[in-house]
């Protein structure tokens, strides 16, 4: 028995039928970190290749969206932004939401768009969503630069905004958004390998979700009651409000909200990864 055990220990890889669904191969993913970076490079380079504006699109998108929102929601609909200059308000929301939705859509198409690759080569499949998160982070950083540019301009012109030590929460918010994006994306990805029409629902659903996430209006506008409670269940609400609070000093952030948001995020990513693992094992057989 002893000999059997030592013999077993000398094997590099053992392939067996049952691997726990909760298993995340951290060590393996770390070993494949170079592949992750290569995929990040590949995605970044090919996204806007042979386009006129190239990487500038990362900035043009939130810029135009914020301008449009300012025109429609602030100037025409006259929705209050709580004293914050409208452009900044909308840009903050757009940049955050942009990162989140990019993570979701990037992760959601993992199995379907990579089915030929997965069919031929082994690497831990989580490498693909992780590389998506990182690529989107690059875009986020560029958009933050744009945001800060506007910020400085407005602050110099005396807008009632203040930044302080609060911005230290940004990494935490990013991690939370990434985790949520990954979780939801995994969930969608797992289902779309079986029923492909859900992909179409996804884009539609993300758009609707945006309107329920206080991107274009502050949480303070929502009347207390059952609707308000519903809002609290949306983890992105807390993230965006916290972002605005951190950078501009105005936002509804309570411990209660933040903790619910964390709990929902953790559950989402947990379930997402579980489903991802289940799908990973069977996707080659089904797709």
């Amino acid at each position: 028995m002893n000999l059997d055990q030592t013999e077993k220990n000398t094997w590099t890889t053992v392939i067996e039928p049952r691997v726990s669904l909760f298993h995340v191969p951290w060590k393996e993913i770390w070993e494949y970190r170079e592949l992750i970076m290569r995929m990040v490079h590949r995605d970044y380079v090919s996204r806007y290749k042979q386009t006129f504006f190239g990487s500038l699109w990362y900035l043009l998108q939130p810029l135009f969206t914020s301008l449009m929102f300012t025109l429609v929601f602030s100037n025409i609909a006259k929705i209050s932004t709580g004293g914050i200059p409208p452009m900044l308000f909308f840009m903050a929301g757009t940049v955050c939401w942009g990162y989140f939705s990019a993570c979701v859509t990037g992760t959601a198409t993992t199995f379907i768009s990579n089915s030929s690759l997965f069919d031929k080569v082994y690497f831990p499949r989580l490498v693909v969503p992780i590389s998506q998160l990182i690529v989107n982070l690059v875009g986020f950083v560029m958009q933050m630069a744009l945001f800060l540019g506007f910020y400085v301009w407005y602050a110099w012109h005396g807008a009632p905004i203040s930044m302080g030590w609060r911005i230290i929460v940004l990494p935490v918010l990013l991690i939370q958004m990434g985790a949520l994006g990954l979780g939801v994306g995994c969930f969608v990805s797992a289902i779309t390998t079986r029923f492909r029409d859900l992909q179409i629902l996804l884009t539609f659903f993300i758009q609707l979700w945006m309107y329920g996430s206080c991107v274009v209006y502050p949480l303070s506008l929502v009347p207390p009651g059952p609707i308000h409670t519903l809002y609290l269940l949306n983890p992105m609400v807390s993230v965006i409000e916290a972002f605005r609070y951190a950078f501009m000093g105005q936002g509804t952030v309570t411990l209660f909200e933040v903790s619910i948001s964390f709990v929902v995020s953790i559950i989402t990513i947990f379930v997402g990864v579980l489903l991802f693992n289940k799908t990973e094992r069977h996707c080659v057989d089904i797709l």
Partner: peptide, 26 residues
């Protein structure tokens, strides 16, 4: 190549394994 999982049984491998099922993957 670990692309799909076995239903029963076990495979034990010693050493780095490279599998070429297609050329130009990715």
């Amino acid at each position: 190549s670990r692309i799909t999982a076995p239903t029963e049984g076990r495979i034990s491998i010693r050493g780095r394994i490279a599998s070429l099922l297609e050329v130009g993957t990715g």
